[in-house]
Nucleic acid binder design. Structure first.
Lengths: 273, 273
DNA sequence: GGCATCTCTTTCATTTTTGAAAGTCTTCTC
DNA sequence: GAGAAGACTTTCAAAAATGAAAGAGATGCC
């Protein structure tokens, strides 16, 4: 055997073999009898085997043909499997990256932008560098600034403001991120502003929130987070220096993807409300 | 999804998806870039899905495209499996039917007409009505007469003669086939000729031989069987009334099957020697 | 900024594939 | 035994698929 036969020709072979002739197979496959005749001849030429004996009573498998037929049995179910996959396959995932606080907000407000009837399923990804979207490792990102790269499309959503929160006004000492993970503007600002007051640190922003709830210290949070936490109360004014817009970012091409467009619209509606 | 996509198109889809573009896939599949471009468009049209976002940087899977790619993973191995099957698949079987005695003869003389280097494997089938070959339920038959149907080809081989055999000349009483299975000329002849002497009967011809070897009675056997059984000796003359030619029969079309032709030639050589 | 290179699409002449119709042969039916 | 019905193949004109070349846009390198 020099080259691979066409998979389509093999499917036709199965039809012919199982129907004992071209006529039945033609009806079954929607192709014409002459076409099947030629395709079977071609298949035999490619495989360098004689698959049928062509009596005037019809096509009958040769010994070699029977072997091929036998080996293709499992192959036969493929068409049905494929149909099932295409009709009832899992919903496409839309990969969403966000910072810790926005991710928390999305988690808590999931029903407001997604439900079981959606044609897609969210896949929340660990937020890392902006390259994620540019390199198509993610579909949608939530950022604190518009994208710089021209091939990324940005949509401005809500304005995010920050404030200091604590379990009570008696609480003293700030909670801060460990040095290695101190990369966000708010984390840097806390460090720069309250360095002397920072006692406990953690490597995970979510941990800071849990600590604050336990009364372990003061924490700087976006208001959209702080306001929803029962255990915490806002301490002092909002921090204007940290205020920023929130941006919904995706690859320019991806906006034409029906599924991603829907996810974008729903996220946008949530964040702008 | 209205209609099934071509399996070939799906293979091309896998190539494009995994290479992140048409150029690489073209190199891999041997088709030209424009062809792949059109086939992917057609696939999307048939599936009614948008599988790729076509940026100027290349083809990138959409959310829907990723789902299809995922579901086709197992499908991917098929090409390799198929190649293996086609190259190292089992040898074709040649289905041979014969009467009990001839079957026994073939079994005992297997090395004389078949060995591991043959391109085919014998499949000895229970001998039933002549329709077996006409309806292609078997490939080669050994018969005691030339075929009557014009679409069966016959080849005369050896002349078969019969005689009475027993463990010793002292043995009395004939062994015969039970009435229901008494269909062969020799079985009928024994019944007609020695009815009064028949004591033990069996439904299986092979059983008669075993009984005779045990000294249970006289049995009528083809000489080609009787002569090879150590325990038995010929009693009296050959029975001319039962003498007949042995015919190698196959479907007329099947003679053009390379594999069956080889089997025919080898059997013929054995039976004519 | 400019030039080379990469991507995919479009165009177009050529090749291939297709199916209706006609042809051939066999089998079935009366 | 003639006619009808069935099988497959051949013929041939129309339709579809193909790939080289050209076009268009993005990227990368210097």
């Amino acid at each position: 055997m020099k080259e691979m036969p066409s998979l389509d020709d093999l499917m036709l072979f199965l039809a012919v073999a199982d129907n004992g002739g071209l006529a039945g197979a033609a009806r079954l496959t929607g192709r014409s009898v002459p076409t099947l005749s030629r395709r079977m001849q071609q298949l035999e030429r490619v495989l360098e085997l004689v698959l049928f004996s062509r009596g005037k009573q019809g096509y009958i498998l040769t010994a070699q043909g029977r072997v091929l037929r036998e080996n293709l049995s499992e192959f036969q179910g493929i068409e049905r499997d494929l149909r099932k996959v295409l009709e009832h396959g899992p919903r496409p995932q839309v990969r969403i990256t966000a910072g810790s606080w926005t991710a928390l907000f999305l988690a808590q407000n999931l029903p407001r932008f997604w439900n079981q009837t959606c044609a897609w399923v969210p896949d929340f990804m660990e937020s890392t560098v902006p390259l994620d979207i540019a390199r198509r490792g993610a579909d949608i990102g939530l950022r604190n600034a518009p994208p710089e790269q021209p091939w990324l499309a940005g949509r401005r959503t809500r304005r995010v403001t920050y404030a200091v929160y604590a379990r009570s006004i008696e609480v003293k000492g700030f909670l801060g991120l460990s040095e290695r993970v101190r990369q966000t503007p708010s984390a840097k600002w806390v460090w720069d502003t309250y360095r002397e007051d920072i006692s406990i640190t953690a490597t995970n922003p979510r941990m800071l929130l849990d600590l604050a709830c336990a009364g372990a210290g003061l924490v700087v949070l976006p208001c959209f987070v702080g306001e929803t936490v029962q255990e915490l109360q806002q301490i002092g004014e909002r921090i204007e220096a940290l205020s920023h817009e929130e941006w919904l970012v995706c690859h320019h091409e991806a906006r034409h993807d029906r599924v991603i467009r829907d996810a974008l619209d729903r996220l946008s509606e949530l964040l702008c409300s």
